[in-house]
Each structure stands twice: as structure tokens, then as C-alpha cells.
Simulated assay, not measured.
Amino acid sequence: MDLPFRFGVSAFTTMPWSFERDVAHYAQAGVDAIEVVEAKLDDDRLAEQMDAITAAGLTISGVQPRVRTFFASRMMPDPPALEDRVAALRGTIERLAKFAPGVPFITNTGAHPKGDMAEAMRVVARELGELGRIAADHGVLMALEPLNPSSVNVESAIWTIDQALDVIHDSGSGAVGLCLDYWNIWQQDDVEGAIARAGDRIFTVQASDWRTPRSFADRIVPGDGEIPLDRLLAATHATGYDRPYVIEIFSNDVADSLYDGDLDAVITRSRDGLARAWMAA
């Protein structure tokens, strides 16, 4: 079945696979775009690996940097110093931008060591302003992702679309926009209104589904959980968003981990679940 939108898959969804297997299996499954996870890349083979994406008929929907938060987080504690983390983000842009023109590089705040969310937002806005300039010089974008409230002061200092939009505004950079992950924001008050307020600053969209988490990484296939994906898709489409809709699933430390099962089936089921939600919308 042809989809009325471009379908992408994050390499986080198939984390047990190598980069090469991601590319081969996504292409076989009819995936349009891959969200590249830098941690899966070999620095000595970047050009070869990036060329493999194009050769397989895929585009790049986004890049997940190896170090993607400004402050340390549970998932990414090292390096601890802000300046080293910013330098790592800058290095990712400089290494990968030429292979991914126009693509958003995804980031989030991380957790302020003293829980000072206000300072975290100020610092991230300042640093994103500079990284936005560097990204623009390299022909790419930066996309800031608010995380679910369960991640506050663990992975993130922001948890709503509007907080992210405040940081994006304060960055002063037109190259800085929003990474809209439905799993993270679906419980926000007036979420559809917030999506409308984001408008053309939505640079990438990620989808999965929600059950009450059994671990820090317990996402499920779209259509298998509680998220009103039809409403969120309709609100996003109404903004004029026309980039890929990307499946991003994490599944660690749970007895029924999707990572332990048939990941080809996860891709197919995710595609079908997102298509059903789109038709319902």
C-alpha cells in the first residue's frame, strides 16, 4: 500500500542491528528515510556508509548525534563538561553535514546538575544560537526535543512543546526548530494547540506508542497503545509539515522487549499502525 506521507525509521528502533543491516532491511521494507544514529557509524568509513544510504534509495530524515545533550543525562553522562559536549555536537555537524544537506540534527537539553531548569533553558538557548549559526553555515538544521515528564531532571529540563518553543525563540536562530516526538508530548495540555503554535518550526516528527512504562525505555508499536495518533497526525499535517514521519522506538529492560523479537515485523507493523492512524485522521 502506498502511503500518503513519507515513512521513516530511526536506527534506534533497530538498535541491535548494525548500520549496514539497518540500511539493507529498511530498503527491503519500503522505508523512505532513515534517522541516522551516529553511534552506529564508523568514523573511518563515513563516506562509504553515507553513500550506502543513497544507493539503497533512502533519504536521511535526521541525525542523532553521539553526544546530543548540552548537560549530562542518564543515557549520556560523558563528557561531563558543557563545553566538551557542545564541542562534540559541533564536531558531529562538521563531520556529517555534507552527507545530509537540509537535515535536522536532533538535540535535547539534558539534565541540569542542580535541577535548575530555568538556567538550563537559558544556557541551551545561548548554545543553540551559536550551533544554529554553525548548522546554517553547513546547510543543516538543529531540532530541539522536549522529553516526557518522566525524564525531567534525568534526561531533560523541558517537557512541553511550548517550553521548547521558548528556547528556540531565545536562540535567535532560524536554523533551530522542534523535534516533535509524540511519545514525549502527547499528555501535554492542549497538545493540538501547541502543535499548531509550533507551525513551521517543526523540523522532524517521531512516532511510537505508549503503555505505562516498565523501564526508562519502553515504547511500543504505533496503534498498540494509548496515544491518539490520529489527532496528533491531523494537527501536525495542518501546520504544513511535509518531512518524513519517523518511527522511533526504544525497548530496553523489559521482559517483552521488541529488541529481542522480529525487528522486520516491528517496522512493518509500525508502518501499518501509522497508516491506520493517518486514515482515521
Rank of each mutant, 00 (worst) to 15 (best):
Q187V: 00
T69Y: 05
R219N: 04
V254Y: 02
L131E: 11
A265W: 05
L274N: 08
V86L: 12
R122A: 15
I249M: 06
W278H: 02
D209C: 01
Q28E: 15
V67G: 02
S270M: 07
A72N: 05
G193V: 01
E145Y: 02
W183L: 01
A125L: 11
Q163F: 05
L178T: 02
L258M: 04
E155C: 04
R231T: 03
A265Q: 14
L128I: 12
V167S: 06
L46H: 07
V140Q: 11
V205N: 07
A47T: 15
F19E: 10
E127W: 01
G91I: 03
A234M: 05
L58Q: 06
T160Y: 11
A88L: 03
T59V: 14
Q206P: 04
Y259Q: 04
E119N: 12
L58E: 07
P146R: 06
D218T: 03
D2N: 14
S61Y: 07
M117W: 11
Q187N: 02
P222N: 10
H138K: 15
E38G: 13
G172T: 09
P104W: 01
G174S: 14
P101N: 07
D170E: 14
A52N: 03
E83R: 11
A72F: 04
L258E: 07
L128C: 03
D189R: 14
G30T: 13
G273C: 09
S151H: 14
A27Y: 10
G129Y: 05
Q187D: 01
I158D: 08
V103S: 01
A81C: 00
F99G: 04
N252G: 04
M121P: 06
